[in-house]
C-alpha cells in the first residue's frame, strides 16, 4: 500500500498519441493528498488529453499512471471511478435529455452506501442551491453556469478522493467563475484532492498550491503557484505580462 508521503496520483513519462500525432510527449507530475494542483496551458497543449488518459478514456502509449498505489492501466474507465477518481469533463458533458436529479443519480451508479448518497445530495444542494431549485428541470435547458455546477455536482456524487476538473471556467461570466472557484476551494477544504486544468491561469494559480505548465505535449515549467506567478515566462504567456 501507500507509504505516508507517496503521492495520491503519480503520472510518469506519459505518452499519448492520436494517430501519428503525439499529444503528450512523456509528461510526469504528481498530486498529493489534500492538494489543489493545476495544469495550465494554451488550447491544444494536451491538458484535456492528460485528464482523459487518467480516466482511462484514451489508451496510453507509454508511461504509467499510479493512483493510490494502483497502476490505472489495468482498469477500465468505470472501474477507475470506483477506485476514487471523479472527472468533470471538458464541455461539462451533462446529459441534456435527463433531469438535473437524474444526472446526479446516475453518478451514484456504482455506489451502494445509500445513507451516504443522501448526505451527498444534501451537500451538492448546499453548495449549489440553484441545482436544488431546478432538480426536476431537463438539464439541457440550464444556463451555462448551472450546467457547470451540475458537472461539478455530478463529480461530487461519484465521491472520488481525487477530482479531475477540465476547464470549469470555460464560457462563464466572471462572477460565475468566482463562484465556481469558491466552491472548489470549499470542496478541497472538505478533503477532496483536486487536479484542475485551466486556460484561465489567473484563477487557477489563485486557488492551487502547485502548478505545471503544459506546452505542446510537454511540461515546460513547474513549481509552487507563488513561484509560477513570478516566473517571467509564465507571466508573459499566461498572465498577460
Amino acid at each position: 500500500m501507500m507509504t505516508p508521503d507517496a503521492p495520491l496520483l503519480s503520472v510518469q513519462d506519459l505518452v499519448v498519441s492520436y494517430g501519428n500525432i503525439k499529444a503528450l510527449r512523456g509528461i510526469s507530475f504528481e498530486v498529493h493528498e489534500g492538494e489543489i494542483v493545476t495544469l495550465i496551458g494554451a488550447n491544444g497543449a494536451g491538458k484535456s488529453t492528460t485528464l482523459r488518459a487518467i480516466s482511462g478514456l484514451i489508451p496510453i502509449e507509454d508511461g504509467r499512471i499510479i493512483f493510490d498505489g494502483k497502476d490505472l492501466r489495468a482498469y477500465p474507465p468505470h472501474r477507475i471511478v470506483e477506485l476514487g477518481i471523479s472527472h468533470a469533463p471538458e464541455g461539462r458533458g451533462i446529459f441534456g435529455t435527463l433531469t438535473v436529479m437524474e444526472n446526479l443519480k446516475l453518478a451514484t451508479y456504482a455506489r451502494r452506501d445509500k445513507d451516504e448518497i443522501q448526505k451527498d445530495y444534501r451537500r451538492v444542494f448546499d453548495l449549489f442551491p440553484r441545482l436544488e431549485e431546478r432538480k426536476n428541470q431537463i438539464a439541457g435547458t440550464l444556463s451555462g453556469g448551472e450546467q457547470q455546477m451540475l458537472a461539478v455536482g455530478r463529480a461530487l456524487m461519484t465521491r472520488g478522493r481525487l477530482m479531475l476538473l477540465d476547464e470549469p471556467s470555460m464560457g462563464l461570466a466572471p462572477i460565475l467563475v468566482q463562484e465556481i472557484f469558491r466552491v472548489l476551494q470549499e470542496i478541497n477544504q472538505a478533503g477532496t484532492t483536486i487536479l484542475l486544468v485551466e486556460q484561465n491561469a489567473h484563477m487557477a494559480l489563485q486557488v492551487a498550491s502547485r502548478g505545471y505548465v503544459l506546452e505542446t505535449g510537454s511540461i515546460t515549467v513547474q513549481g509552487t503557484t507563488q513561484a509560477l506567478t513570478k516566473d517571467p515566462k509564465v507571466k508573459e504567456a499566461y498572465l498577460g505580462g
Partner: peptide, 20 residues
C-alpha cells in the same frame, strides 16, 4: 437512465462509474 444517458452522449457515461 443509463440507457438514456448513453443515447445522449456515450463518451461521458463511463465517468459516472457506469459499465457501458
Amino acid at each position: 437512465m443509463a440507457m438514456r444517458a448513453i443515447s445522449f452522449d456515450k463518451t461521458v457515461v463511463p465517468l459516472m462509474g457506469i459499465p457501458v
